[in-house]
């Protein structure tokens, strides 16, 4: 079932989030409008809330204030039960894991398809194998997760996302822990997928090279605010001291190292 051809839209207004009522807001005031073809890379120091922001868009977390609308539909506040059509629009890959140990490679994709789509059993299997091939995992379909290397696990996460043919892709650090060559291959796979499709891609990354290559818009998340530049070029040139410090690395600037664990 391919999605009805349409142009996805995301609108985030005055979004704020705190893990519990008495804690300071991790995200203070985020405003964002995205449409098909946007590839937003969210950069920022660790602990700034990149993963949290993705989870909010996906509906895994509920905003403390403000609202998120996907195609005009407000993400409901009552917990994780979204309309099925909503869940079918987006797919998310996680920084660590997110895959099920109990299943092998193709079964991981099959599981997601069974939950979220109406394909028949044979269609699902065919689809699983197809997307494993797309990401370069032919021959590994029956492997168990512990037989797969870090790079292969990332590819599998992507295959699962792609197989759901979402209009909105949320990728949490898709190249975390990978060497530059493997990371490059992953980026190519993502680019290829997004190429001829009307999709919105939002990804969080700690890797500048990956972000510069994959994104056509970049945002810097820090202190609860998203500084949002319209292009990679503008981002590199902007005069925000935190962003400049982040890009160049180094100690001179407003960014400090996190000392304590994030509670």
């Amino acid at each position: 079932m391919s999605p009805i051809p349409y142009e996805p839209q995301i609108e985030i207004s005055h979004l704020g989030f705190a893990f519990s009522a008495d804690k300071t807001h991790l995200l203070k005031e985020i405003n964002l409008a995205l449409r098909a073809g946007d590839r937003l890379g969210i950069l920022g120091p660790s602990g700034s809330g990149k993963s949290t922001l993705l989870k909010l868009v996906s509906g895994l977390l509920i905003p403390s204030q403000g609202e998120i609308r996907v195609d005009g539909e407000l993400i409901k506040r009552q917990g994780l039960k979204q309309s099925r059509s909503f869940s079918q629009k987006m797919a998310m890959s996680f920084q660590k894991g997110g895959l099920l140990d109990a299943y092998n490679a193709w079964e991981n994709i099959d599981f997601a398809l069974a939950e979220l789509t109406d394909f028949s059993e044979s269609e699902r299997k065919e689809r699983s194998f197809h997307f494993l091939k797309q990401v370069g995992l032919s021959g590994s379909e029956n492997k168990r997760l512990k037989e797969l290397s870090g790079g292969m696990l990332k590819r599998l996460s992507l295959a699962r996302v792609f197989a759901l043919s979402p209009s909105i892709l949320l990728l949490d650090d898709p190249t975390a822990g990978l060497d530059p060559v493997t990371a490059d291959e992953i980026v190519s796979i993502i680019e290829e997928y997004a190429e001829n499709r009307s999709v919105i891609l939002i990804f969080a990354s700690g890797d500048l090279a990956v972000s510069f290559r994959l994104a056509n818009r970049l945002g810097f998340l820090w202190n609860g605010f998203l500084t949002y530049e319209q292009s990679v070029y503008d981002f590199k040139k902007c005069d925000n001291p935190a962003i400049q410090q982040f890009i160049r690395g180094g100690l001179s600037g407003p960014l400090t190292e996190p000392v304590y664990a994030r509670t």
């Binding site: 822990g177 700690g206 500048l208 982040f246 690395g249 180094g250 100690l251 600037g253 190292e257 996190p258």
Partner: peptide, 11 residues
């Protein structure tokens, strides 16, 4: 430096 922020990397 794997897994560290750019600031920590420099340190």
């Amino acid at each position: 430096t794997t897994g560290l922020d750019p600031v920590s990397r420099e340190v």
